Amino acid sequence: MSDISDKTTLRPFTPEFPEADVAELRRRIEATRFPEKETVSDQSQGTPLATLQELARYWATEYDFGRVGASLRSHPNFITEIDGLDIHFVHARSPHEDALPLIVTHGWPGSVVEQMKIVDPLINPTAHGGDASDAFHVVIPSMPGYGFSGKPTERGWDPERIARAWAELMRRLGYTRYAAQGGDWGAIVTDALALQAPEGLIGIHTNMAGIVPPEIEQAIATGQPLPAGTPELSQEEQRAVDQLRVMYSHAYYAYIMGDRPQSLAGFADSPVGLAAFMLDHDAASLDLITRAFAGEPTGLTRDDVLDNVTLFWLTNTGVSAARLYGENKLGFFSAKGVRLPTAVSVFPDEMYQAPRSWTEKAYPNLIHYNTLPRGGHFAAWEQPELFVNELRVGLRSLRK
């Protein structure tokens, strides 16, 4: 490494939190003032009171606040300044020198915590049921405004700018041939990266494919009928349309964060308030997390969920992360014209299941398409074994 006074160098970083901050977090959890119980017997009004009360009880009395830092410290962490902003990233190199470099991008309400379960199997496949030929060198950055990355102080950090920063990061790391992966915002950033096609990027994997014809997404987003002349939809295409109509009619969190992020200032004050908002991302995920806090074994544990919320609160990124929704100019789910080799994994509890017909049109260089038996929006976090296998199989042809 060069002179550490140069902020564009790769500076080693240790993720940790002052004990005083942790003590204050616990104090605020214990002092939470709860609202009354919801007036319905389902989750249609948002995160249930009983779930929040159990979350707060467990968080304050049983949760190990050292978990999240220890998990991140299990692999090398770095910070480097790109385009005027500090970018934090985990960089885990495989012991197999022929490993394929892979940059993995998280989403909201996620963080690099989401991907920690997949790192070891990706970098050391021979210890996790794979072959040395399946190995990856893994780079997992925190998006601007998230985790330990810097918080933008001006407008402009949209997915396309983030994608350019990722290309620069991989260049600084010396990777001249690499792939990219993403879900949620990570999928949009990865699509943008593929559209920019920087030197060295050879293909992508997505678990939230951008495949909807733009005119159809626009109609769904605005609550309008499908455009006149829309070809008759197949059963799978109609299912995706129906799922997206439901999603758009309930994704008020996205509209609030996109238009009025500063009005969410209470997230900096109340950890349980932050958790209540973060848990209510989509119906399937909320149901999964609610069952976890009710003591039912699911793909996510109570500790998993609280690792992520703890990172958000201790880094005070509830508002700064929200601003990405107002920066984005790309369609959330629409086809964007990606031409690079693309692998697509479809999880059954994702907000929508990408039909193969639309996927083949959206990604004409489709090298892998698979529907999985279980898993949802936070696939790497919830079903790491399935997710790792999808990366191994889906990107295998790029190693030739």
Rank of each mutant, 00 (worst) to 15 (best):
P261T: 07
R260D: 06
T317Q: 06
K361L: 12
A276L: 00
V346I: 15
R339E: 15
L314G: 10
A283T: 07
L286P: 11
P297C: 10
T290K: 02
A268G: 13
D287G: 09
L340A: 13
T310W: 07
Y352D: 01
K329Y: 02
K361I: 07
Y352P: 10
T359C: 12
T359H: 07
F277D: 04
S270R: 06
D287N: 14
L324M: 14
D303M: 07
T290H: 12
A322W: 03
F267A: 11
D349E: 15
S345L: 08
T310C: 11
N316F: 00
F347A: 13
M351K: 03
T359A: 14
Q353A: 13
V305K: 04
S334F: 00
H281D: 15
P355F: 13
G266D: 11
M257R: 05
D259N: 13
G295N: 07
A321L: 05
G318V: 08
G331F: 11
P271K: 05
A294I: 00
P355I: 04
A343W: 05
S345H: 02
L279V: 10
D280W: 02
M257L: 01
L330C: 04
K361S: 15
Y363F: 15
L300A: 08
E327H: 07
L306G: 12
F293Y: 04
A321C: 04
P341W: 06
R323D: 07
P271C: 05
L330F: 04
T301S: 15
F277M: 12
S320W: 07
V338D: 10
M351E: 11
R356S: 00
L314D: 03
Q262F: 09
N316W: 00
R339P: 00
T310E: 09
F293R: 03
M278N: 14
E296Y: 08
T315S: 09
G266W: 09
L330S: 03
G331S: 10
G273R: 06
E327R: 01
Q262G: 11
F267Q: 14
I289V: 15
K329S: 09
E350A: 13
A335D: 07
F333K: 00
L286Q: 05
E350P: 04
P348N: 12
E360I: 02
D282P: 01
P348V: 09
M278E: 08
L286C: 09
